[in-house]
Amino acid sequence: MFKQILSIMLLFAASLTASAQDTRCYETRIYYTHPGRLEALLTRFRDHTTKIFEKHGMTNVGYWVPLHEENKLVYVLSYPDRAARDASWKAFGSDPEWKKVQSDSEVSGKIVAKVESIFMNATDFSPKIKSSKSKKERVFELRTYTTNTGKLPDLLTRFRDHTLKLFKKHGMTNVAYWTVDGKDDTLIYILAHPSEEAGKKAFDAFRADPVWIKARDESEKNGKLAAKVESVYMKATDFSTIK
């Protein structure tokens, strides 16, 4: 009887874990504008684009501009799945309202010079992504890890078991974590800090933490996990759902 009860409890726990797993399709989109046209792009998003996205079933996750790069907008959308994403964008592109907005906003010339798109899946340890607005202005850090061959599972384990807790310990806010669809060597995540200076100080303290050093060394007994780490500090736009 005890074994039967235990089996039922384990199955129930497994079902809860499965239902809690975020299976939505996420997309990071990076827009590079023609020189001097970023404000026109932000105005178009603020006044029109985000609303038309919602009209067609897209979820606005967050919008940011890099602190040290000009003419660039980074934003994240989510959809129920990849098929829904494609259907939403098809409907958006043919929407008369969007066509008029695009035409009116480009009377003085094209706004966007280039678009990059990255499809992503939430990790099983990513916090639930929801709208959040801090009372004090924050900066956000977009970090991209490229692993050595075959090391992504080990990196994810280290983040799941150690890194997120240590980030929190040192005053960093975990916003979201994703792997990249179709790639087995990339982790993308976003942190929030009170300021860029505070973020850098927090990472200095994190790297010197004996708990981190032990976790890192134990996880890398068979070789380094990360081959490259990229970091971009950003500020949220005034219309971002995450600030």
Results as ranks from 00 to 15, higher is better:
residue 120 M to P: 02
residue 228 K to R: 08
residue 154 D to R: 09
residue 63 Y to V: 07
residue 154 D to C: 03
residue 148 N to L: 08
residue 105 S to I: 04
residue 24 R to G: 01
residue 161 D to C: 05
residue 18 A to R: 10
residue 203 F to P: 09
residue 73 L to N: 14
residue 51 K to A: 14
residue 177 Y to P: 09
residue 201 K to N: 12
residue 16 L to V: 15
residue 2 F to S: 08
residue 19 S to T: 01
residue 6 L to C: 07
residue 219 S to H: 05
residue 142 L to A: 13
residue 76 V to P: 04
residue 182 G to V: 12
residue 226 A to Y: 00
residue 52 I to A: 13
residue 45 F to V: 13
residue 47 D to T: 14
residue 71 N to K: 04
residue 168 K to N: 15
residue 54 E to I: 11
residue 73 L to V: 14
residue 104 D to V: 11
residue 21 Q to M: 08
residue 177 Y to K: 08
residue 224 K to N: 13
residue 203 F to D: 01
residue 217 D to E: 06
residue 169 K to H: 14
residue 182 G to P: 03
residue 114 K to T: 01
residue 184 D to F: 09
residue 123 T to V: 09
residue 78 S to E: 04
residue 35 P to S: 06
residue 77 L to P: 04
residue 118 I to N: 01
residue 75 Y to H: 15
residue 218 E to Y: 10
residue 91 A to N: 11
residue 241 T to M: 07
residue 48 H to T: 10
residue 242 I to K: 06
residue 60 N to D: 09
residue 21 Q to G: 08
residue 19 S to P: 06
residue 109 G to K: 04
residue 44 R to H: 09
residue 180 V to Q: 13
residue 122 A to C: 05
residue 121 N to E: 04
residue 89 W to E: 05
residue 5 I to C: 03
residue 193 H to F: 11
residue 85 R to Y: 07
residue 69 E to S: 14
residue 235 K to C: 08
residue 144 T to R: 14
residue 59 T to C: 05
residue 241 T to E: 14
residue 4 Q to W: 09
residue 196 E to H: 13
residue 203 F to I: 10
residue 126 S to Y: 09
residue 110 K to Q: 08
residue 203 F to R: 15
residue 139 V to W: 00
residue 22 D to V: 02
residue 200 K to H: 05
residue 231 S to E: 00
residue 214 K to S: 05
residue 42 L to K: 01
residue 210 P to F: 06
residue 107 V to P: 00
residue 225 L to D: 03
residue 45 F to N: 12
residue 110 K to G: 02
residue 141 E to L: 05
residue 212 W to E: 06
residue 52 I to N: 09
residue 6 L to Q: 10
residue 217 D to S: 01
residue 36 G to P: 07
residue 91 A to M: 06
residue 43 T to I: 05
residue 227 A to H: 12
residue 66 P to V: 13
residue 28 T to E: 11
residue 98 W to F: 11
residue 19 S to F: 12
residue 240 S to I: 00
residue 2 F to P: 15
residue 83 A to P: 01
residue 231 S to F: 03
residue 75 Y to C: 13
residue 130 K to V: 13
residue 126 S to I: 12
residue 14 A to V: 02
residue 168 K to L: 06
residue 182 G to K: 04
residue 51 K to D: 15
residue 125 F to L: 03
residue 131 S to Q: 12
residue 212 W to T: 08
residue 216 R to S: 14
residue 180 V to L: 02
residue 216 R to M: 03
